[in-house]
Design a binder for these strands. Sequence first.
DNA 1: CTGAATCCACCAAGATACTG
DNA 2: CAGTATCTTGGTGGATTCAG
Lengths: 140, 140
Amino acid sequence: MSDKNKYVRVIDASHADCHALAETLGRIGDKWTVMVVGTLQDGPLRYNEIHRIVDGISQRMLTLTLKGLEQDGLVTRTMFPTIPPRVDYELTELGRKLIVPLQGLYDWAVEHRADMLAARGRFAEKQRAAVSRSSSTTLR
Amino acid sequence: MSDKNKYVRVIDASHADCHALAETLGRIGDKWTVMVVGTLQDGPLRYNEIHRIVDGISQRMLTLTLKGLEQDGLVTRTMFPTIPPRVDYELTELGRKLIVPLQGLYDWAVEHRADMLAARGRFAEKQRAAVSRSSSTTLR
DNA sequence: CTGAATCCACCAAGATACTG
DNA sequence: CAGTATCTTGGTGGATTCAG
């Protein structure tokens, strides 16, 4: 495990392995999954507790997101057949391990968000300049 | 910068900051972005070189993906006004920094993909069991 | 070669209402 | 409380064609 990284210079040797990363991002890279995982990192929560915390998510999307996470073994679903019913969701060991690389990405996002926004601004500027230049040449 | 992490226990303190991560994942978490970044990590490439390597991506999606990456300042676009035209794409410093956290996620994906597939199998099994149970109770 | 433009199919996701 | 069912819609992505 430790000697594995010695020979891995970058993301992967063959680009075929890159599909693994793309596949994983396809699962957790949607709009809600990481936020739900984020709310669960401090301990188990009930359905409506998550619903209140994430705020903005619809019942449908919360249900689908939780089902997807359960399907991938990232959270456990515990049902208490009481009245009223109670369902707890909790990160599994696998889910907690996911938080580590997610943390790395989070740090990157926080640290470089300003750079990205600045780049957006410069890009928009260049776009407007290019448009005005092409329109002036075509109109005359 | 170094003392910042001392007070960050997990992903974030307030859930509001979690939006930064969700926002970033929304940009790079699509089907093609990480694969394009992966192909560019070894050096600059031309449009058609990327097109051949990524294989499966349409011209439209490649163009849109590259434009998005350029917009966010993750790649640079260099145009040579020759005939035939030639355009090089290269990771910026910001883009190369992104590879580090991406590597972490990649390692997680490779290491735990088997676990996820196993969890999928167990989930499908439980689903089928639940369906057959409910159908047998309703039919009798 | 490097795109842009157009058309189209699919589905992800929101709103709403209903159920056990 | 914890979902499911249904409808609707905006956007995403693929195929194809055109252009500089």
